[in-house]
Design a protein around this nucleic acid. Sequence first.
DNA 1: ACACAGTGTGGGAGCGCTCCCACACTAGTC
DNA 2: GACTAGTGTGGGAGCGCTCCCACACTGTGT
Lengths: 347, 347
Amino acid sequence: MNGNGRSGGRPTLEEVAVRAGVGRGTVSRVINGSSKVSEQTRAAVEAAVTELGYVPNRAARALAANRNDAIALVIPEPEARFFAEPYFSEVVRGVGAALAETDIQLVLTLAGSDRERRRLAQYLSGHRVDGVLLVSVHAGDPLPELLAELGIPTVISGRRSAAETLPCVDSDNLAGAAEAVRHLLDRGRRTIATITGPLDVYGAHCRLDGYRQALAAAGRPVDERLVAVADFTEEGGRRAMRELLERSPSLDAVFASSDVMAAGARRELRAAGRRIPQDVALVGFDDSVVARHMDPPLTSVRQPIEEMGRTMARMLLERVAGRGGSSGSTGGPAVVLPNRLVVRESS
Amino acid sequence: MNGNGRSGGRPTLEEVAVRAGVGRGTVSRVINGSSKVSEQTRAAVEAAVTELGYVPNRAARALAANRNDAIALVIPEPEARFFAEPYFSEVVRGVGAALAETDIQLVLTLAGSDRERRRLAQYLSGHRVDGVLLVSVHAGDPLPELLAELGIPTVISGRRSAAETLPCVDSDNLAGAAEAVRHLLDRGRRTIATITGPLDVYGAHCRLDGYRQALAAAGRPVDERLVAVADFTEEGGRRAMRELLERSPSLDAVFASSDVMAAGARRELRAAGRRIPQDVALVGFDDSVVARHMDPPLTSVRQPIEEMGRTMARMLLERVAGRGGSSGSTGGPAVVLPNRLVVRESS
DNA sequence: ACACAGTGTGGGAGCGCTCCCACACTAGTC
DNA sequence: GACTAGTGTGGGAGCGCTCCCACACTGTGT
């Protein structure tokens, strides 16, 4: 047992106080940026802090203040979709950026099975974090309600329905999809099909609505035979494309609700001897690595994922800070960020 | 101000003790699985814990025990290479898996600039995590030494040199590269070129060595004109490919030290009118999304990244637990995991 | 002269745990 | 029967903070 870090270890508040010739309370006030400290005293304390290299002990602070200076990012691990793409890293980066200025830790939590998710709720109830960020929550997930009951501030990514009640950050799926379709129309495409995600996923639903609205706005009728529902997988995209080609052989453009499905569609189009973009223009959604490296590179709708992460973190911090008081935010708790079309050679 | 969680809030150790009709010390012993508790008492305490739904307060425990039950995963944020690929998610997943059984938190830390990294060291020393996982550390990075000085157990991913002194987990870059080259030889390729990463990166160096050794083992001379050094970027790969084609127009295979560079090489090969794999076989390294979605799909060396993460976490936990004692591990602190070649249509 | 609010400051109490010493009780030894 | 060693247990002390009450000390109004 060598030095356990106590004897001669990190300086404590008390030691700083002695050094500065003031009381503990005063040092605490300075550290926490409280008012009511004379300029002179503050300077003396700050000097002592610097000299001693004082860093507050997080655990002690948490214990005394009943606050943790930590938030959790809960990730539904089995969700291949979330993990596969830059999505994950970008969200993390955004959240990290928002937290960089503050003194708040990011605790990562992988919630795999349903059992693990329940365990997680208990874990979180140990009041180890001040708030929770929930990514890609499904409609039936019990976690959000559980957290609400526990009184833990929560922000989720992506609305679960049009009437989302929880604070959340989403991208404008409808507008993004509409822009993609408008782009295809502008390029002179006449028969634009779409491959959607599962329609019980709200985001997928919105993208389909965007497709419809863009066509309607251009005075085009929406032919339901040009709509194929898939499941966000490559194989699903492929199957959907096959269906579409059978139903409407004359199509000259496809808007897929995800890049991965677009990749599947591309394969099927190739197999059918259609050239991209000469015969059929193809647009995806997500602007993932897949899009950039596809052959030809895929035009895709880019979500501001990093910014979404940043926004989520900021919203959560606001909520954590203002807990109990009037939540403040006027209107709904949903922030919707704009998407942007990245045009490449596939359209 | 509604309930602040104190009045009638979470039960404390004391309350459990009263309920079970024992002392605080005894409950603590049961909670921490200590020996020296009679079976009867243990049962009584466990019953009380369940009835009350007791969850230990992490902060209090940390404060009293001078331990945190948390480790940090430090990520060099600006490293596009780390962030771009599934690498990140897979490491996190592996680390998460190793931690799932334990009660240890994963704190994510993004260290951007060098300044931020220094701040981080202080942060880590004050915000007390029990250990640190460092991913993709460069040769000149001061962080590992800083952490050693602070006495914080550390495990890094990837050796920085052949004589790595820190505990680390790496994949067998040399063997992986050798396998890739052997595969090309088996396919009957005669003139195999390679595109390497920057040779001051140890891993890149190893991959080049693997290339050389595989050729040597097959009794082939190594022609230095078939070696082009790049920088792990797509554009770099492209330039390197151009060079190679100029120097050795008759090459019929290329082993690139990363998928991204392979993607660049592929573009250049296409531009030069070479078909893949008929004219030139192409093999990458990393088995990233890029590889799977390339056209044709890219044969690539797959690193067991998730397992590396798991191993790192386990090593760290071991070190955290056995701090001060004889570190135990026989021999070096480096664990090297095997790579695996994933064969696809590009070769 | 008095009371009074306002401003800075010191320090007690306590957050919920772990550590460890003290103690009761048992069982074996001389 | 007193002495030791071992086993299970209770509870004091303290980890390093924040919270908040008490106390100067000042200035203003009566």
